[in-house]
Design a protein around this nucleic acid. Structure first.
Length: 511
RNA sequence: GGAGAGGUGGCAGAGUGGUCGAUUGCACCUGACUUGAAAUCAGGCGAGCCGCAAGGCUCCGAGGGUUCGAAUCCCUCCCUCUCCGCCA
């Protein structure tokens, strides 16, 4: 869903973008609906404001007095008018929503022109198929042992076509690949989540499966749940209708799920064997990033996805999808295709996309800017990028202070600031879990009162780094909080405390 | 599955028809005091949308209804908790 304001103010840009995508959308109808909506809202708000004011006056009158009674009669008409306007507002908003949802995301300038997949550009290749893959390679359905290791027939008996069993070493291979992908992602800064495999209608709507693609999902009708067609659905919906702190961006999550697709309408040779199944396994990566960073983040994701294939020594090519072939909600998309020697063709194994604010808006995921005047720091819509890729290891020095924990305010190491009052509140989710007092710049100590108050288990032995910072990990405690603190002294030998990293750990996890 | 209780600002918890967008406490922010803390004191402090601003609108689980007026009364749904039963 595009920002109505953006649409209004950049109508030609949107028109051009839609034309590049070869979509047919009546933008004038959208503009008209938007105009009608804004008009109706303004009208309603004026009337409601008058009603509110009159009601307040009325409340001050003695109840049952003639003036009061007269006011009641007078207010009846005003009330009826407000109700009428309110009804109209919800009607035009409904209309606006309906037409706005029909507008696709616009392609990025770097997306090439084109109509079909034949127009996609190969932007990179890696590995020589002739060298890495035998010319005599067979398709998997022609390999006898393969057909024992993947049991289609019993899958058909137990469930139906497209639900094979993986047996023995093949089952272990599947498990190993999932494990490998997750471990790579985890070591590259993604937080792993396990997730529901069934979602409600609201979630399926937020990520765009409903209402249009309902036929692609399995539907448990008794409880009105949908089997997820991709991990993107539960992982993205994690933050649905929430406002994130800018400091928490980029937020990176990964998750493994089986995916379930009815594949209605799929047929023919290209679905043979393992090429298309009703249930398959996928490791998904989702990032919520700052709007200014989203295209740079996309490039990083693509690089990381490529690195994974390189580590597996699989020859592949990278396609930049053309405007005519790109998805409805995508702004830019790369596909990674691996050379399948047996089938003698390239097969898509990964897709990296930037949705800009399109999907985040639909899902109601926003962020609150960190800087600036509080009164003007209205939330903006965050960007969601989803792809299967991996993230660079983050360096120690890039830890960012998170909102609830820092007092004094985080400062740049080495700069001299107002002396610390040596009262430092460490909070998690709004709760203070500890006051930490340092009586000596070199040797931090924890007063008994603080121990009692916060239940912190212990300070570990600190480490002094060459830049003069003293690092102390504080772990444990009733709230299972893990803190990494840095301490240093200025010329007055006043203690300085700076929270460099603040991270919530699950109880029992090693700090 | 049966019975009961309840969903209010970061948390706790008042509020049962109008001056309530909401008492109070905790937490948080600013300042005073202090060698530094703790304690204490003074002030501030929910969120979203529109607007340059002034200001306006919306939000007390969700949706409907009653009323001039709803956090408050009625209906439906969702969710949570407790007890009993049943079952991994």
């Amino acid at each position: 869903m595009l920002d109505p304001k953006f649409l209004r103010e950049n109508i030609d840009l949107v028109r051009k973008g839609i034309a590049r995508k070869k979509f047919q959308v009546d933008l004038d109808a959208v503009l008209a609906a938007d105009e009608a909506r804004r008009h109706a809202v303004a009208e309603f708000e004026v009337a409601r404001s008058a009603q509110n004011a009159a009601n307040k006056e009325m409340a001050a009158l003695p109840k049952g007095s003639p003036e009061f009674q007269a006011k009641v009669v007078e207010m009846k008409t005003a009330s009826a008018k407000v109700k009428e306007l309110e009804k109209k507002v919800s009607e035009v908003e409904e209309q606006m929503k309906a037409v706005a949802l029909s507008v696709p995301n616009i392609p990025h300038d770097s997306v090439p022109e084109g109509r079909t997949e034949a127009d996609n550009q190969v932007v990179a290749t890696w590995g020589d198929p002739a060298q890495l893959v035998s010319a005599a390679a067979k398709a998997h359905w022609d390999i006898a042992w393969f057909n024992k290791a993947i049991d289609f027939e019993r899958g058909v008996k137990v469930t139906g076509a497209g639900f094979p069993f993986y047996v023995g070493d093949m089952a272990r291979l599947v498990r190993a690949l999932i494990q490998y992908f997750l471990e790579e992602a985890g070591s590259n800064g993604y937080t792993e989540v396990t997730r529901p495999l069934m979602v409600n209608a609201a979630s399926a709507t937020a990520t765009g499966q409903l209402p249009d693609k309902e036929g692609q999902m399995y539907h448990a009708q008794t409880d009105d749940f949908y089997m997820i067609p991709t991990a993107e659905v539960p992982v993205t919906n994690f933050f649905r209708d929430e406002i994130l702190d800018e400091a928490s961006l980029p937020m990176k999550r990964c998750g493994y799920t089986p995916c379930f697709r009815r594949e209605a309408g799929s047929w023919g040779a290209h679905v043979r064997g393992l090429n298309r199944l009703h249930q398959f396994d996928k490791v998904e990566l989702v990032k919520w990033v700052h709007p200014d960073q989203s295209f740079a983040e996309l490039e990083l994701l693509r690089g990381d996805a490529e690195r994974l294939l390189q580590k597996l020594n699989l020859p592949y090519r990278v396609l930049l999808i053309c405007a005519g072939d790109i998805g409805f909600s995508h702004s830019k998309q790369y596909d990674l295709e691996v050379w399948a020697g047996g089938q003698k063709r390239w097969l898509e194994v990964s897709s990296c996309s930037n949705f800009t604010d399109f999907q985040a808006r639909r899902a109601g995921i926003r962020f609150r800017p960190r800087m600036g005047n509080p009164s003007s720091s209205t939330p903006s819509t965050a960007l969601a990028s989803a792809c299967r890729a991996f993230w660079r290891r983050s360096s120690r020095t890039t830890c960012s202070p998170t909102a609830p924990c820092a007092s004094p305010r985080p400062c740049v190491a080495g700069t001299v600031r107002k002396p610390c009052r040596s009262k430092v509140a460490l909070g998690w989710q709004g709760r203070v879990v500890g006051y930490v007092c340092f009586v000596s710049p070199a040797l931090p100590s924890l007063p008994c009162s603080a121990r009692n108050r916060c239940g912190l288990a212990a300070f570990s032995a600190g480490r002094t780094f060459t830049d003069g910072t003293y690092w102390v990990a504080v772990s444990g405690g009733a709230d299972s909080v893990y803190l990494l603190l840095a301490l240093w002294a200025d010329e007055t030998l006043r203690p300085r405390l700076r929270v460099l990293h603040f991270n919530h750990r699950v109880r029992g996890e090693a700090a």
